[in-house]
């Protein structure tokens, strides 16, 4: 392939592969915790680190990492101390971060290349061999921590109060997660840019969430989606001449819309089938109950009734008794209102 002949494209594709894998692996915990925009905020904070790096002529990746991790720890401590001013404190930190970065970068000596756009929106083709090495180390560390602590991070993200009650170290785990986010932010800086980082953490998780059944499968799926959109977006940007960051994010959003539509279509089909069966029973007024003549079949938290070769599961709705159809082998959701997007075919 033509694009693999260039060294800069090889490095770009390697970087996008790592980012695509790592960002969703951390992002699923943020989505679970309903803190989707934490990555965005830490991206702002990282810009101050970039500014410091450029000013002191040290590697911006290193200083950005330090700034983002410090910001992450600070945010968790603010959150843990109380909710009264937490929201405002976060805003101050985030906007302080981006303002500090812009001002510091403007102070850089004339001769230095300070391309603000490259940091804000990504400049993947400027990735150096040294950058790739640093990214590989960060990716390895982040994935190792997720592998080691994933269950605990899930527990804390899922139900922080329960985790605290049973004695899991909630604050340290939250700080670990925030540090993982900070590392991912710095890793993604070159590929999608600081302003679009959050998208690569959240969108693959959002896609996977629509079709996953378990948390584990959702996590793997999110990583798969991340790798595909990241590498495809980077390769595509080579041919279209568009910025890699924006291309990747638009690709992820397109995928999200397609999957959302697909799931909605599947649910609508299932509902229509269900609706047809309900009509049959509306013309057939019979309330199942003890001694109604149909064989009762206990099922989960309710009783089904064997009825002309299929099972009826009565439940009350606003308009009277309504029967779910069970085909004997499957277990459709017993909830009165099937949760949208989770109903099984």
């Amino acid at each position: 392939m033509e694009l693999l002949e260039y060294g800069f494209m090889q490095r770009a594709l390697l970087a996008s592969l790592m980012v695509g894998l790592v960002a969703p692996a951390v992002g699923v915990f943020l989505v679970q915790r309903r803190l989707s925009l934490l990555g965005d905020g830490l991206g702002h904070v990282a810009l101050t680190g970039v500014g410091v790096g450029v000013l002191t002529s040290s590697a911006p990746v290193g200083t950005a990492l330090v700034a983002a991790v410090l910001g992450a720890v600070l945010i968790e401590l603010v959150r843990a101390r109380g909710r009264t001013s937490g929201d405002v404190a976060l805003a101050v930190l985030f906007y302080g971060g981006i303002a500090g970065g812009v001002v510091l970068l403007s102070l850089a000596p004339r001769g230095q290349a300070t391309n603000l756009d490259a940091y804000l929106f990504g400049a993947i083709t400027t990735t150096t061999a040294a950058d790739v090495a640093v990214f590989a180390v960060i990716s390895g560390v982040v994935l190792a921590v997720v592998w080691l602590l994933g269950r605990r991070l899930y527990a804390v993200s899922d139900d922080e109060e329960y985790a605290r009650a049973v004695g899991l170290p909630v604050l340290p785990l939250n700080i670990v997660l925030a540090a993982l986010v900070a590392s991912t932010v710095v890793l993604s800086m070159r590929v999608v840019g600081l302003l679009l980082i959050s998208a690569l953490m959240i969108l693959p998780s959002a896609v996977a969430q629509l079709v996953g059944r378990s948390f584990r499968s959702t996590l793997y799926l999110a990583c798969g989606v991340g790798v595909v959109v990241s590498v495809a977006g980077t390769a595509g940007s080579y041919y279209t001449g568009t910025p890699s960051g924006g291309t990747i994010v638009l690709l992820a959003i397109a995928l999200f819309l397609v999957v959302t539509a697909g799931v909605a279509l599947r649910d609508a089909t299932a509902r229509r089938r269900h609706g047809r069966q309900v009509e049959v029973h509306a013309a057939h007024p019979h309330e199942h109950g003890e001694g109604c003549g149909h064989r009762p079949v206990p099922h989960g938290d309710h009783v089904d009734y064997d009825h002309d070769g299929h099972l009826h599961a009565p439940h009350r709705t606003g308009t009277g008794t309504h029967y779910d159809e069970h085909d004997g082998s499957a277990h459709p959701p017993a909830a009165v209102v099937p949760p949208v997007g989770r109903e099984r075919p």
């Binding site: 679970q32 139900d159 948390f215």
Partner: peptide, 15 residues
């Protein structure tokens, strides 16, 4: 609660 899907086994496993 939880925004992401999880199986009964995963939720109970947290215990």
């Amino acid at each position: 609660s939880g925004a992401m899907p999880a199986t009964v086994r995963e939720v109970v496993g947290v215990g």
